[in-house]
């Protein structure tokens, strides 16, 4: 089944879009067919239904049944490769 990643930021438009672009590039490099959806943190509970992984630039204030990855290293560049490997390992089962 096609994997699905949810990218979250405060408002679902600004920093999450930067992350979406970085993940698109990553999945293209890795030749992986992954669906990426985007949203705001307020809606994370409903949006995270059926996704394989949540990648967020902001703290998720609720507990989810799916893993959450902190996306801030993809903005600062510090620890970016580790975050990429972590995301890939979560999706390559």
């Amino acid at each position: 089944m096609k994997k699905k990643v949810l990218v979250i930021c405060g408002t679902g438009v600004a920093t999450s879009t930067v992350i979406v672009q970085k993940l698109k590039d990553l999945f293209q490099r890795e030749k992986m067919n992954v669906e990426i959806v985007q949203g705001k943190v307020m809606e994370v509970s409903s949006l995270s239904q059926g996704v394989d992984l949540v990648v967020s630039t902001t703290k998720i204030p609720v507990s989810l049944s799916v893993d959450v990855v902190n996306a801030v290293p993809l903005l600062t560049g510090v620890g970016q490769d580790e975050v990429f490997s972590h995301i890939l390992s979560r999706l390559k089962v």
């Binding site: 405060g10 967020s56 902001t58 703290k59 902190n70 996306a71």
Partner: peptide, 10 residues
């Protein structure tokens, strides 16, 4: 330096 709260952990 000025203190800002963190995006990933306010």
């Amino acid at each position: 330096p000025v203190s800002f709260f963190r995006m990933d952990d306010p």
